[in-house]
């Protein structure tokens, strides 16, 4: 379905999606991306520029394709039988779906945090050391220890777990587990972190900690977060994209989207009048 879009429709749809940022250069550019599950099209011709050093939020009603699009940014869709991506997704200007692209390298550069905390049934230490070991990042045990400590510190978990690094990661509380997963993701020093509803399984206090953490992390990484909470999007993100029925309806700075949405559908959704 990569047929050229008719001119009239292109003019119509290009109004919203592409959002060149004057200040921060694009980390990821998606151009005309469609994602299929078998015959079914879940993402339909989406284009978006995701900047460095910002948090970009994806919002939209359930089933509109936020997770699908997010997973296509680090090729996690490759693991789903029948899933297919069309169009171009560039990371620093290089197409991540080109045949020479090494998926292992890609995922080291574009990390992911899932909706439900999914620590491995291993010790806290081993959870963090997992990525660095796979990618051969640490040359010595000392270096690995350093990476583990630094990652846990950046994820704001170090003080809580430093005395029990040998305990199982699954024995932590939900919020701690999610920070462990974030620490695990940053242990391989990625450039982008994708988060799919990272707080939806957490209570408000744990959520607040994660939000703080996201804010601290954005200095180093480009962060993309999918969320169902308008407040959360407003609190943590600087850019917001509103998805609906597999398309991006509107994309802009978070303050614009929340205060002066251009599209009626966006307005309805953020004010809770949707559906």
């Amino acid at each position: 379905m990569n047929a050229p879009v008719p001119a009239a429709e292109a003019a119509n749809s290009s109004a919203a999606p592409v959002f060149p940022d004057p200040v921060s250069p694009s980390k990821i550019s998606a151009r005309g991306v469609s994602v299929y599950y078998g015959q079914k099209r879940a993402i339909d011709d989406v284009s978006i520029e995701i900047p460095k050093n910002y948090v970009t939020a994806f919002i939209g009603p359930s089933g509109c394709g936020k997770s699908t699009f997010l997973r296509s940014l680090n090729r996690m869709n490759d693991t789903i039988p029948g899933a297919r991506v069309e169009g171009e997704i560039l990371l620093d200007g290089m197409d991540i779906y080109r045949s020479a692209m090494d998926v292992v390298q890609l995922r080291a550069r574009v990390g992911m945090v899932f909706q439900k905390p999914n620590p491995f049934p291993k010790s806290i230490y081993e959870n963090i050391a997992y990525g660095p070991r796979i990618h051969g990042i640490a040359a010595s045990k000392g270096e690995l220890d350093g990476i583990v400590e630094q990652s846990l510190q950046r994820a704001g978990l170090w003080d809580e777990v430093k005395d029990r690094l040998g305990d199982s990661g699954t024995a932590l509380s939900g919020g701690q587990q999610q920070r462990l997963c974030i620490a695990r993701a940053i242990a391989v020093d990625p450039e982008v972190i994708l988060m799919d509803e990272p707080c939806s399984a957490l209570d408000p206090i744990a959520t607040a900690r994660i939000e703080e953490l996201i804010d601290e992390l954005r200095g180093r990484y480009a962060i993309v977060i999918v969320t169902h909470s308008m407040q959360q999007a407003a609190r943590v993100s600087q850019r917001t994209a509103f998805f609906h029925l597999g398309k991006i309806v509107e994309y802009g700075t978070t303050s614009d989207i929340f205060t002066t949405p251009r599209e009626e559908r966006t307005k309805d959704y953020i004010t809770g009048r949707y559906g």
Binding site: T79, R107, F114, N118, Y130, I134, A185
Partner: peptide, 21 residues
């Protein structure tokens, strides 16, 4: 759980590494 597998793959582990580790 599938989440465990996804977690490992998302770290850049290959399929064989995910299975083994």
């Amino acid at each position: 759980p599938q989440a465990m597998r996804d977690g490992s793959l998302a770290m850049g582990a290959t399929r064989a590494e995910t299975i083994r580790k």
